[in-house]
Amino acid sequence: MTEQSTYTISEGARKSRNANFDKMIREFFPFIGLVVIFIVFATLTEGRIMKPAAAKLILSQVYVPMIAASGVFLIMTAGGLDFSQGSILGIVSIVISWLSFQSIPLAIIAGILSGAAIGAFNGLFHVRFKIPSFIVTICSMFLFRGFCAYFTTNAPIAASQSITKLNIDSLKNIIMVSVLAILFFVFQYTGLGIQLKAIGAGEKAARFSGIRTDRVKFLIFVLAGAITGFAAFLNVIKVGSITATAGNQLETQILISLVLGGLPISGGSKVRFSNIIIGTLIYSILNNGLVMLRYDTAIQQLIKGAIFLAVVALTIDRKAIKVIK
């Protein structure tokens, strides 16, 4: 018996080194992608993308999607999808703009709550009525986009100047880093991550392992809504006045970013927190690089679509795709 187990350990240790090597390659692949795409655009733009002004521009475009993506990251880890983030950002930006004339803390809290409310709406329909999450969230995307259009029919909604004064890079940096740090901590050290990964990899077995799957799924939709509600605050700071198209296509940007960052589209155990950061950076370098190269918008879309499709085709786990919820 002891002989058997020593054999298992030593042999196991050797094999796991092999397996670790494979795993390392897989885990570093998105990072390598980031470096490659940076070098490609640095070369194509003859170094313009590395200039401080360009770097600042890229960074300024990263705050909102990075924060919003971190909420969707939780949903996708559990094997779901969320297409409603753009609409949430739009509608919550309107709420924040209105309230910014009263009090900024009130505006922030109301933003988080209204985001959470829409998230709860998604979660309720998904969990309670057992509708796949991508269908529910596509519906709420149209629904809340409709509200956005209704409120901005006559004119864009302007925010108070006291809020636009907060458009300070260092502040936004601190906010973004804090949100990511808090979320990382919660994901990694409270058991949320291990539960979400288990739900993504096999919901039934997760339930039989003692995870309250319905409750957890509902909560992450609420959480994702709340996080995007908070991101809307940064959006208002930046743009100052909200039009009907506020946050338009944020959902696809998030989806593409996360997948570029190495997040398996069906979620599960191979998810890494770094997917959020690397993915969002890859997307904005790609986006700004194409703009700097003065490609036509239509061509930009085409290139992005092609890259997205290629990455999904290369990385998708075809056995797991059936379980998208």
Binding site: Q195, A205, S209, S269
Partner: peptide, 25 residues
């Protein structure tokens, strides 16, 4: 469970996570 692959164990996840899940608290 009799249905080992779908109910007893989360198939696409590591041995570690599967052993630890019920004891995570």
């Amino acid at each position: 469970s009799k249905d080992r692959d779908n109910e007893s164990l989360v198939s696409n996840t590591s041995i570690r996570d599967n052993i630890c899940l019920p004891s995570r608290q």
